[in-house]
């Protein structure tokens, strides 16, 4: 399967998921996307920047991390707005990559994280 097919499979596996994007955190860039409808570039740019901002890399800010001494990077970022639940999951194999799942407000975050973690190794293997 191609990366795009893995993304689509992941989107279909998550109830209420509108978009799944594979993101390069260092470049703040969406590399591949599966979405229920055509997405404007501004939205993809925003998601790339948001992922990079929330899942900062050590070289960006040595103090930024979790928990305690600031040496552990956040592996997930869950963002709840009035209209959307957005889950960002960092790749275990390649910390510079992450998956973004933009879902309906009432989407279950634990199931979304699990689905993203299942598919991330397969997408990385396609690099």
């Amino acid at each position: 399967m191609s990366a795009a097919e893995h993304l689509e499979e992941c989107r279909n596996a998550i109830s209420g998921c509108n978009l799944v994007a594979f993101i390069d955190l260092q470049a703040s860039m969406v590399l591949s996307v599966s979405a229920a409808s055509k997405q404007r570039q501004e939205r993809l740019d925003m998601l790339g920047a948001l992922a990079s901002d929330l899942l900062r890399l050590p070289e960006d800010d040595p103090l930024q991390g979790l928990p305690g001494d600031g040496t552990v990077l956040p592996q997930t970022a869950i963002r709840l707005s009035a209209t959307e639940t957005t889950v960002f999951v960092r790749s275990q194999a390649e910390p510079n990559e992450a998956l973004c799942c933009a879902c309906a407000p009432d989407t279950r975050v634990d199931e979304t994280i699990a689905a993203a973690r299942r598919v991330l190794p397969d997408i990385g293997a396609n690099d």
Binding site: L54, L66, P67, P74, Q75, T76, A77, I78, V109, D110
Partner: peptide, 15 residues
């Protein structure tokens, strides 16, 4: 609008 962000491992019971 109100925004909530949670950063960490994503695993219940962890920091």
């Amino acid at each position: 609008a109100p925004i909530l962000c949670i950063l960490g491992s994503g695993v219940d019971g962890e920091p």
